[in-house]
Structure formats: structure tokens, C-alpha cells
Simulated assay, not measured.
Amino acid sequence: MSLKNAYLETAAQAVALLDTPEVAALWGKPSVLTEWSVGGLAGHLIYQIFSVAPVLQEPESEHDPISLLDHYARAVWIDAPLDGEANSGIRAKGEDISSEGVQPLRERARAALDEQRKGLAQLRGDRVVFMPQTGWALTLDDFLVTRMVELAVHIDDLTVSVGGRVAELPHTAFAPVAALLTELSARRHGQAALLRALTRVERAPAAINVF
């Protein structure tokens, strides 16, 4: 299965989560993430789907794409403070998206996903996608992996926030997400820390988090 199909399956899980009554009932309540409401977190989750729409609407970029590892090395939000400009802006955008309410957001997400099912099938995986919010470009396949990372992490966040049971990702999505996070963890903490965390509990570090 292609990364495009893996992304579409993961995005469909996010839309299905938005359709659960628990999310609607707790929309204005705090989520498990500090300073995020359930609705704001849902808005941020669904934004990952909306962010793919320009790929279908704009011509291929003439920029040279960078690698996924370079993309995350440049990302200012990873080590930014919770109350810093980058993270405050991300939360504000999620809350703004959620302000339309759960039902309109759900309908808009379904429509976006239907359009992407048709449009992505026509595009090459090595198509170059420029991201104006960052100022650099990725290949379409790499861009979709970044969306799957966001979707995977925040599906878990939102599910736990509403007391649900977290559904497993399809293997075709989990594999590239896990591979990328493993690379990022090793780069941040070192190979030994990662290996010990996975195989030697007696020597495992306290954390091997990526974000």
C-alpha cells in the first residue's frame, strides 16, 4: 500500500473519532494536554487533514525538497516553551478551528477527505510540496508522513481525553511513523539510549521522547 493510502486510512480514523458522542459531550472541557480543550485538540487534529488540501490545489513547487530529518531539525515548535509564541499559535489555531462546533467540523473534515481520496491518487509520491508555514519543501510522501505522525499522536491524545479505547493504526501507517520517530529519538538521545530503552530495562534511560 502506498503512503498516500496509509495517510487516507489514518485520516479516516481521525474523522471517525470526531464522530463519537464522547468528543461532542466533552468539547469544551480540558483535554489531557496542558492548556488544550478537547475541542481545540480536535481542531488541531483535523487541521492535519485540512493542511493537505493545498497539495491538490497548487502546482508542484520548484523548491528543492529537504529530508524528513532536516524538517524536524528545523522545526521551531519542538523545543519551544509551552507558553512560547510557536505553541501558543498552534493552540490558538486549534481553538479557532473548533469554534465552528463539532458537527460542522465533522462535515468539513469528511468533505476534505473525500476530495483527497480522489485527488491524491493522481499525484506522484515524489511530487514536491512547498509548505509556506515553514518556508521549505518536502516530497509528497514525506509530507504525508509528517501528517501521519501528527494524526497518530493526536488521535491518541484525543481518545485518552474522552476516556475512549485507542484504536491501532493500520500497519502501513504505523511502520513509517515508528521508523521516523525511532530515527528522531536516536538523534536526540543517542543510539545507546534507544537500544537500552527497547531491550535493557535495567539500563534504560528515563526518557527517549522525540517531542
Rank of each mutant, 00 (worst) to 15 (best):
E9D: 13
A92V: 02
V153M: 14
E100Q: 14
F211C: 01
D64V: 13
V52A: 14
W136N: 10
G119F: 00
T34W: 02
Y47C: 02
I208V: 15
I208S: 09
E115V: 02
A75H: 10
Q122Y: 00
T146I: 02
L144G: 06
I97N: 12
D83A: 15
V15K: 05
T10F: 05
W27L: 03
L194N: 07
R108T: 10
Y7P: 14
D83K: 12
L181I: 04
S67T: 15
I66N: 05
P65F: 06
S98F: 04
E22Y: 05
A186F: 03
A121N: 11
G135N: 07
I78G: 07
I49T: 13
V32Q: 09
A204W: 10
A175P: 00
A16K: 13
D79I: 00
T199M: 14
A53S: 13
D19S: 14
A112K: 01
M1F: 06
S99Y: 06
L45S: 03
P30Q: 08
G28R: 05
A109F: 00
A11W: 03
A80L: 04
D157C: 09
A137Y: 10
A186Q: 12
S98R: 09
A178Q: 07
V129L: 06
D83L: 15
P205L: 09
Q13Y: 04
S2N: 14
L151T: 11
G190E: 11
E115T: 15
H44W: 10
M131S: 10
K93H: 13
R74Y: 01
N5H: 11
R108D: 14
T134E: 15
L194A: 09
A92M: 10
S99H: 08
D64W: 10
V160D: 11
G101C: 05
T10M: 05
Q103I: 11
R188Q: 10
E115P: 01
R108L: 09
V55S: 01
Y7N: 12
W136Q: 09
V210E: 10
V15E: 07
A73F: 02
T34F: 01
L194Q: 04
R147S: 09
A14Y: 05
S31V: 02
